[in-house]
Design a protein around this nucleic acid. Structure first.
Lengths: 354, 354
DNA sequence: CTCTCCTTGGCAACCGGTTGACAAAATGTT
DNA sequence: AACATTTTGTCAACCGGTTGCCAAGGAGAG
């Protein structure tokens, strides 16, 4: 129909003839209106505003719609209303299994609420993240930021345009879902103290990571409480590789127990220590964070402070849905979810006690 | 502006006032046209049809656009053209790490091509999958199906409406990206034969899985070639749990080497066997498929036939992009990517030789 | 200095729904 | 039976771009 017809069309703009406007399934409300003998706007109301149309007409229209195999055109709807029935999710790194569960949780509740999830990655860069966020913001009804790297102000700025939910970080004025690390860390540190450890080292994550800072805070204060020494070292990157690289410094620190920013670091560290002939947990105890997929594949399986990441994703999506449905509290409150220690084999009693 | 104003608005339809049509950033081509003193259609052309407008006017318009911080409204564009700059990806199970590389690969090339990726999950159900696919088809320019569970005909049906690319399955008439298992399997079986094994058991995946069938074919013929016995057993589900459950049957089979449909099964099996005091690989060699994240976390690390899943995702996205740009071959050809054996610790010489 | 031909810009219709304003019909009131 | 009120449906404008068609303007040719 809308075909160029002219064969002289240029190359760069060419394509798609094969798929252009297939006959089927593109019935419009006008077709329905004609079939049902009513006005298009009546069709529109019947299909989206329950109760605005008499039961009889309603039925007539619904039947016609079913007959014609009608589906709304999302763009036509989005244009005047701005509603898209789509939620966006931006994660720092799709490779990082920490986000697996978040994605899954968000996708599940989005779908359950008849929304679709759009996914983008920021490659751990604040600039890329902001670009992706801005781009998405145009096409989604709400945006979830998982462990965002951009500044608080930038986040608040985004939140001024569309509902935004943040995971793994607390930003004033924006709805957040944050695992409350204290319980889990408390359990971990008490367990280490009970097993004869006196000095704990924390392997930090990326500097801009809000969560890494919270975890270090938590470790420090829990250690103080339990009369343990706590020192902190930095990592180059929050990956298995980064964990390997941290091994030397860990040994140099003289600590007998390690808490690391995440499980990936913990796993890398454990691999490297074991390769160097060090027994885990007999000589060094290792505790990770998050309980990611695969944390129990290691030998010994990794002890870790579990964050309910799937729940975080799901809650964040639910927050957006609530906001979009108008049933959300006025003030942006932070939702805290519990963390807990999952004791596996990588932590335990110190054998070669100091 | 478009505010209801009437406070009597009903509850269920209420929301969003806070975010309605923020003043900023919604400059339109009309605003630009006014600012540049030209017609809106000229602006449209300047912004999308290179060369259709004189350099001078072009510059004028671009400056005005930059000035006003203009961004096209994707919906307004999608409405008349049908183009959305969006690609859809449907995976069977977001939890399954097999798909993470695929997602990542697809997301990366989609983004590189200025497309956005939409993600949906089918929960391993053909019906859900079809629903999700249909839903997506309305809003994307192309669709990637990863390990689809629906029928060939259903897939071809979808492909009639919009470009479709399939990963991990071959469907006649549809563009596919399929790891060619033979090389990897050949290497694996030869390696097992060389290490003194005589009987191999294959743990199958879900019955509807095309790939599981291919792998079994490959195992059988490679074993024939190397004069090994090959038997097949079924699994309840393609997960770690499923692998555990398969352990009994594996032992009962009398085989000394296992190839399992995927790494998850292999890992579960290994855990269960080790728990029963069986040495891997001394008593039983285990080989998985895919080389998923975490496959090297185990002790011993898992030997596996690696499929370049990231590449599959990336290639599938590229196929769609090509098709959309009109630079794709007429006939739908299947792209085969190589697999290779990654030898780690879970396979090796049989010690208690038969 | 005309007369083509080509480039460039403008007009207006269109994509497919949504929605405020209003009129017609149905219902209830006195 | 006449009037007030509510329900139901229609009209028409609008969302923000895209694009076929046409005309004005400029360049080049004769």
């Amino acid at each position: 129909m809308t075909e160029p017809a002219k064969p002289g069309a240029a190359a760069p703009t060419a394509p798609l003839k094969k798929y252009a406007r297939q006959g089927k399934s593109n019935a419009t409300i006008y077709d329905i209106a004609r079939a049902a003998g009513v006005n298009p706007s009546t069709v529109s109301r019947a299909l989206s505003k329950p109760g605005r149309v008499s039961a009889k007409t309603q039925k007539l229209i619904e039947d016609a719609a079913a007959e014609l195999n009608y589906h709304v055109n999302p763009f036509a709807r989005a244009l005047p209303t701005g509603r898209t029935s789509t939620l966006g999710l931006i994660v720092a790194d799709i490779t990082n299994p920490t986000f697996f569960d978040i994605i899954r949780g968000a996708e599940t509740t989005a779908t359950a609420g008849d929304y679709t999830l759009m996914l983008a990655e920021s490659a751990e860069s604040a600039a890329t993240e902001l670009t992706a966020a801005r781009r998405m913001l145009a096409t989604v009804d709400g945006l979830i930021l998982a462990s965002p790297r951009m500044s608080d102000d930038e986040i608040r700025d985004l939140a001024r345009d569309k509902p935004v939910a943040v995971i793994n970080r607390e930003v004033r004025g924006v709805r957040c879902v944050v695992p409350d690390v204290n319980k889990g860390i408390g359990e971990a540190v008490r367990s280490l103290a009970a097993n004869g450890h006196h000095k704990v080292v924390y392997i930090a994550g990326p500097l801009p990571s809000w969560m890494s800072a919270r975890r270090w805070d938590g470790v420090r204060s829990a250690c103080e409480w339990s009369h343990l020494d706590a020192v902190r070292i930095e990592s180059s990157k929050p990956t298995v590789e980064g964990g390997r690289e941290a091994a030397r410094e860990v040994l140099a620190s003289g600590a007998t127990a390690v808490l690391s920013y995440n499980d990936l670091l913990a796993i890398g560290l454990m691999q490297e220590l074991q390769a160097a002939g060090i027994e885990v947990p007999d000589q060094i105890s290792i505790v990770g964070f998050d309980d990611i997929f695969g944390a129990d594949f290691t030998t010994p399986p990794l002890t870790t402070v579990r964050s309910p990441l799937g729940e975080c994703g799901s809650r964040a999506a639910a927050m957006l849905l609530d906001t979009l449905h108008g049933s959300a509290p006025e003030v942006a409150e932070t939702l805290r979810v519990e963390t807990e220690l999952v004791v596996r084999g990588s932590s335990g009693r110190l054998i070669n006690g100091t």
